[in-house]
């Protein structure tokens, strides 16, 4: 490759530029988003398990988003947008895997339990 002359610029540009502010913001948000679900569960804040489950699952989604933005530096323009495209594709597959498995297996359990045959 003819990049030897540009090697200096090349490695300076490699990877995202990170800042202390970004990491500290991410960390503080992550701590808050971790402590609340633990408190909700350990302190029995809600009567119903379903409510608790929904609340902690929403905190999980928000926290994953925070980690993605502040720690993994996700945005729409790194690597020409290919990072984000790969991430969205993966999220679709993850959703299909999780929702599909649960849907199929819960239906199987409901309809084919030994007691019913």
């Amino acid at each position: 490759m003819s990049e030897h002359t540009h090697d200096h610029d090349h490695h300076e540009a490699e990877g995202p530029h990170v800042s202390l502010k970004e990491y500290v913001t991410g960390f503080v948000l992550a701590v808050i988003l971790t402590v609340i679900p633990f408190w909700v569960v350990m302190g029995n804040v809600f009567e119903s398990s379903t409510t608790t489950a929904l609340v902690i699952l929403s905190f999980m989604v928000v926290q994953i988003f925070v980690h993605m933005v502040f720690f993994l530096h996700m945005n729409f323009h790194s690597e020409g947008g290919w990072n984000m495209l790969a991430l969205i594709f993966t999220l679709v597959l993850v959703f299909i895997t999780l929702a599909g498995s649960l849907w199929v297996m819960i239906s199987l359990n409901n309809n084919m339990m030994p007691g019913m045959m």
Binding site: I56, Q63, I64, L72
Partner: peptide, 23 residues
């Protein structure tokens, strides 16, 4: 990236496995 990714997975683990497991 690897390290932060593991942290993201752990967020899923502690919510989905531990916190929901004790409900």
């Amino acid at each position: 990236m690897f390290w932060h990714f593991l942290d993201v997975v752990w967020v899923g683990v502690f919510t989905f496995v531990y916190l929901m497991g004790v409900l």
